[in-house]
């Protein structure tokens, strides 16, 4: 026969209180080495008490209390390795580019969708000029009709730096949403990719028809390559999430989603700082004619080449370099 409940609590409570105090210390970071050993012992004792309570006092407050106590102790004893600054450095030196190369299929699919969108938008406007009314925002059409670049006005209305910050945050939002919409089974990501492509294609085609292609190139040359690459990478991340929803493989859908989501978010996190930097270029260099077009184009191509060189070369392992698949060892 089990001990009566009040007697049991009175007998064991000292240990539980001590464990709680140690956990509070651990959380505030003042735990000493000797106390760590005590923490371990007390946790094991509390686990044994929990097993006892499950058998004899199921459903009582003591049971709930021990559950919670052991849960907290379990969480602080079995901690995952902490990510610190060296881990951040390692992430950008090796992990982010490596993840991108591993998931190149998705990034490629995203790029294809995006290019498809551009082609679609351009063809529609070139073949059927009135399609522009549908595909190009009316504000932009208004400017083009007057033969001016709408981007010139960005400068005259607002100082360049506020444009830069506005563009940077806008791009971040688009990137986040493109990734997160992967949760709609990839449909939302797909829509955003094609939609953005159609917009860009339609605007370029409209400018080309009005003989303003030079002006448009002048504006997007400096930041375009990197910015569109990042959109495509975020799209790839979204497609990864969508694919794990549609075809989870051998895992249950929930687990597949969690595993792939962890991989996909690396692509988004890795892109974030580059996006902020390119926002500065878009705000300072691209608008107006402070810089000649050839300089802008050269800068854009250089930045794009650097970005992709980093993505494709950084942290390459020997196995990758010789073309052998990394997971062939298993």
């Amino acid at each position: 026969m089990a001990t009566p409940l009040p007697a049991y609590v009175a007998q064991r409570r000292a240990d539980w209180d001590a464990l709680q105090a140690l956990l509070a210390k651990q959380r505030s970071g003042t735990l000493k080495l000797g106390e760590l050993r005590t923490l371990d012992t007390l946790y094991r004792r509390a686990s044994a008490d929990l097993a006892h309570a499950q058998t004899f006092y199921a459903g009582t407050d003591v049971h709930r209390f021990l559950n919670q106590l052991c849960g907290q102790a379990y969480a602080s004893i079995y901690q995952p390795p902490r990510e610190r600054w060296p881990a951040v450095r390692d992430f950008f030196r090796r992990e982010f580019p490596a993840t991108l190369r591993r998931e190149r299929g998705f990034v490629g699919a995203s790029a294809v969708l995006f290019l498809l969108g551009i082609l679609l938008g351009a063809l529609v406007v070139l073949w059927e000029p009135r399609g522009a009314e549908l595909l190009v925002p009316s504000g932009v059409r208004h400017y083009v009709a007057q033969g001016r670049m709408w981007t010139d006005d960005i400068l005259s209305v607002a100082p360049p730096n506020s444009v830069a910050s506005g563009i940077a945050t806008n791009n971040l939002t688009v990137t986040i949403v493109t990734f997160a919409l992967g949760l709609t089974g990839g449909l939302g990501t797909l829509f955003l990719l094609v939609n953005n492509g159609v917009h860009i294609g339609a605007i370029s085609a409209l400018c080309a028809r009005e003989g303003m292609l030079g002006g448009l190139l002048d504006f997007i040359a400096a930041h375009g390559p990197v910015e569109l690459s990042i959109l495509v990478i975020a799209g790839g991340a979204g497609l990864m999430v969508g694919q794990s929803l549609i075809d989870p493989g051998e895992l249950p859908r929930g687990q597949a989603l969690a595993v792939r989501g962890r991989e996909a978010v690396k692509l988004v996190l890795g892109c974030a700082p580059f996006l902020a930097l390119i926002g500065v270029v878009e705000g300072y260099v691209s608008p107006g004619d402070l810089f000649p077009t050839w300089l802008k184009a050269g800068l854009g191509l250089l930045l794009g080449a650097l970005f992709w060189a980093y993505l494709l070369r950084a942290g390459r392992t020997v196995a990758e370099a010789t073309g052998a698949p990394a997971d062939s060892a298993s």
């Binding site: 730096n161 830069a164 506005g166 940077a168 945050t169 926002g279 705000g283």
Partner: peptide, 10 residues
């Protein structure tokens, strides 16, 4: 300065 302002908004 422009950069400071950008950093603030970001």
């Amino acid at each position: 300065s422009g950069v400071g302002q950008t950093l603030l908004v970001v």
